[in-house]
Every structure is written in structure tokens, then in C-alpha cells.
Design a protein around this nucleic acid. Structure first.
Length: 297
DNA sequence: CGGTCTGGGCTCACGGTTTG
DNA sequence: CAAACCGTGAGCCCAGACCG
């Protein structure tokens, strides 16, 4: 909802940027995707509206914030994925609980499959685009927020080792930027995971952003920071330009991920699990009805 | 020579004050 | 009013300087 709490009179340049922001929000709204400020900023960068610098990021943030306070931008269009309030779940009675249990009910949709797959990304800004897919395919989504942590890698290694014991081949699909640190994060994940898994192979596959994708989609470049200690080797291979994975349009990103996951999934096996899930849900529904009738008596 | 510190890099989302 | 600074909180990695 658009709600105004303050006055704000943007100048011509700011108004132009505000219009760009509003059209991006409208575009994402049709796909039911909420944006973070960071994500909106990257979209502006990829459309060559602003430069990819800390300064312009901050400027975009104030335009968004001012826009929201002044009632120009819908408060619900922007999401803060860091400051989330927690509270234990509650229900409107036992029937309500059973209903949500039916909704939540799932079996292991990767049972009997040849592969075990997880999806990793360095950017929290991609969460709203990735979640629907990892939910649908019933796989773990790990958002590393830059470099991953020892905790995350240790926990992941336990899951992969368990899959190995189940005679599954382990696949880690990775999404990150094409910049000196971004490419290094793939190496980092690979070596640390192998250390924990005692070199039982986990295949780390970068599905985006690749140099090929940069060229194919003609993505706008950023300058590599020469002060980055990892810039040297990168520049020898790719020159002085780098690219953000967020610059890929959401539908292209989703297509890439869908293709990557489906490569490792046997559809017939999944169908069987889904049938079992539906059967179980029917049983649960019958149980819920009996429960409801009993409580009326 | 090996350990630790320093200052750079990445991610995320805010705030305030001064300068133009 | 916007831009350019400064700061807060959190999680990381790495190269080179420094030191015992």
C-alpha cells in the first residue's frame, strides 16, 4: 500500500530515477516478486541508469526511502530480509493446525534418485527469485551473503556425506558474480567442502554468471577494483571488466536453474513420490473431518 | 620462518551530518 | 534538495607487512 508520512519534492534528475524504480517495481510485481533495495539498485545498474558504486547505491537507497515516506512507492514493494521478527507459530484451533499440516506435508522428493542437489548463491538479493524454485524442486537453498562460513560448510558437508552413503552423486549448483572475489568464492566453496568431505567428490558447478552468459546477454560491465588482492589473476583472463549475476533478468535466471536441476532429476521417480503425497494428504483430510465431527459432539 | 595484524575485497540494510 | 561523507550492526576471505 502507498502511504505518505512526509513531504518530499524530488528534483528533475531524482524524479527520472524514481520513474525507473517504479517501472522496475511494476515489472517484478507481475511476477509476484518483492525486491530489496540492493536488488533494485542492481537492476538500475544493469539498465545503465546508475553506476555500480557505493555512492550511487546510497543515493538509490535514499530515493527509494524518500519515495516510500512520501507515498510514491508502495511500502509492500520493498522487502528487508535481514530484520525479520520471530514468534512461535500459533493456530486458530486444532482444525486449523491440521489444515496447515496438510498444506505443509511432503515426502522426500529425491528418494531413490541418482543425484543429491543443493543450490548456493553469494547474494541475498536473489533469494526471492530462487526460493520458489528450490521450494518447487524441494532442494536446499544456501544464501552465503558473500563468502560462506565455516558453520555453513560444515553443516553442508554432513548432508552431502549422508547422500554419499545413500550412493548418490552430490551436485552443488552455484550462482555468483563474475568478478575477482565472486569467482574466488567458487574455489573457496570447493576446497573447504572437500576438506570436510575428505575428498569424497562433491561436484561444484557454477551455473551463473559465466563469461559466455555475459557475452550472450550483452550485460553491462563494471570496472574491476585494481586494489582487490584477487584482481591480478582475474584481469589476465578477463581484462578490466566484471559483471553482476543480478544483471540477468529473473526469467532467464529461473530458466538456467530449472534446466540445471532437471538434468539431475528422474521425473518418473518424482511422480511416484507426488502420488504418495496426495494419497497421504487425503488420509489426513479424512482424519481432520473425523476430528471435527468428534469435537462437535 | 611462521604467526598475527592491517587494509583491502565481498554480501546486507540502515542511520546521521556536512557540503554543494 | 542531493551528494558526499561519516557511522552502526552481521558474516566472511586474502595478500602483504610486520614481528618475535
Amino acid at each position: 500500500m502507498k502511504e505518505a508520512f512526509r513531504e518530499h519534492n524530488p528534483n528533475k534528475k531524482t524524479k527520472e530515477r524514481l520513474d525507473h524504480i517504479l517501472s522496475i517495481i511494476a515489472e517484478y510485481e507481475t511476477q509476484d516478486i518483492k525486491l530489496t533495495e540492493r536488488q533494485l539498485f542492481y537492476q538500475l545498474v544493469s539498465r545503465n541508469v546508475v553506476k555500480n558504486t557505493l555512492k550511487s547505491y546510497k543515493s538509490v537507497c535514499s530515493i527509494i526511502t524518500n519515495g516510500r515516506y512520501s507515498g510514491r512507492i508502495d511500502w509492500d514493494a520493498i522487502e528487508d530480509r535481514v530484520r525479520i521478527p520471530y514468534r512461535h507459530s500459533q493456530f486458530d484451533g486444532v482444525e486449523d493446525l491440521v489444515e496447515s499440516a496438510i498444506y505443509a506435508y511432503r515426502l522426500d522428493r529425491w528418494k531413490g534418485q541418482e543425484y543429491y542437489v543443493e543450490l548456493y548463491t553469494e547474494k541475498n538479493a536473489l533469494t526471492s527469485i530462487l526460493r520458489p524454485l528450490t521450494d518447487k524442486y524441494h532442494i536446499y537453498l544456501n544464501v552465503n551473503v558473500g563468502y560462506t562460513s565455516a558453520t555453513a560448510m560444515y553443516d553442508a558437508s554432513k548432508r552431502f556425506l549422508e547422500a554419499t552413503e545413500d550412493n548418490k552423486e552430490c551436485i552443488l549448483l552455484y550462482l555468483g558474480d563474475h568478478d575477482p572475489s565472486g569467482l574466488d568464492m567458487v574455489r573457496d566453496v570447493r576446497t573447504r567442502l572437500n576438506e570436510f568431505c575428505e575428498h569424497k567428490a562433491v561436484e561444484v558447478i557454477p551455473i551463473a554468471l559465466t563469461y559466455k552468459q555475459v557475452k550472450k546477454h550483452n550485460l553491462p560491465p563494471n570496472f574491476v577494483k585494481e586494489t582487490d588482492s584477487r584482481a591480478g589473476d582475474y584481469s589476465k583472463l578477463y581484462g578490466s571488466e566484471s559483471w553482476e549475476v543480478d544483471a540477468l533478468r529473473p526469467e532467464i535466471l529461473q530458466e538456467l536453474i530449472t534446466d540445471a536441476i532437471e538434468k539431475y532429476r528422474n521425473v518418473d521417480l518424482v511422480e511416484k513420490v507426488l502420488e504418495q503425497e496426495e494419497d497421504d494428504k487425503l488420509k489426513l483430510e479424512k482424519y481432520a473431518k473425523r476430528l471435527a465431527n468428534a469435537s462437535k459432539k
